[in-house]
């Protein structure tokens, strides 16, 4: 059993902030994981999948970073995941964004820049604090 919040808890956050993810194309998928789970043999993650304008959360097995079904993967350390979990019922998204900015969650990009823009990720990722158009801070 991982310490990652269950899909139902994420779903509350995704529905509350539905507009934030509104530009994502149907079929877009974001994975969420706890880093300490990923080293285990049968790790599972939560996947948010865009379907007809709404993100749906469900648990899936982690098949490694080469898993081509994901566009983006958010991997948090134990403290960051626990911090976000505390806020999922109300201010989950700002809490997640803050953790990304503070480095508690790393945001891996599993598609090229063009593909991500095409799939409607640009605003989502920029808002998360991902440096979409530059690097070297």
């Amino acid at each position: 059993m991982s310490g990652l919040p269950e899909p139902a808890a994420w779903q509350v956050m995704l529905d509350r902030y539905g507009a934030f993810f509104g530009n994502l194309r149907s079929g877009s998928r974001i994975g969420v994981a706890r880093r300490s789970d990923l080293g285990r043999g049968e790790a599972s993650i939560v996947v948010w999948e865009a379907r007809r304008g709404r993100l749906h959360a469900e648990r899936r097995p982690f098949r490694g970073y080469a898993d081509t079904s994901l566009d983006v993967m958010l991997v948090g350390d134990d403290g960051a995941v626990a911090e976000v979990e505390r806020h999922l019922a109300d201010t989950g998204l700002p809490a997640l964004k803050e953790q990304v900015r503070q480095g508690g969650f790393v945001c891996f990009l599993l598609r090229t820049q063009c593909d991500l823009v095409e799939a409607g990720y640009e605003d989502v990722l920029q808002s998360m604090g991902v440096i979409f158009m530059g690097a070297c801070r």
Binding site: A66, F108, L109, T112, Q113, V130
Partner: peptide, 12 residues
């Protein structure tokens, strides 16, 4: 090792 990029400018 295969660790995905965090900046979209770079290659897989």
């Amino acid at each position: 090792s295969i660790v995905p990029q965090t900046l979209p400018h770079f290659r897989s």
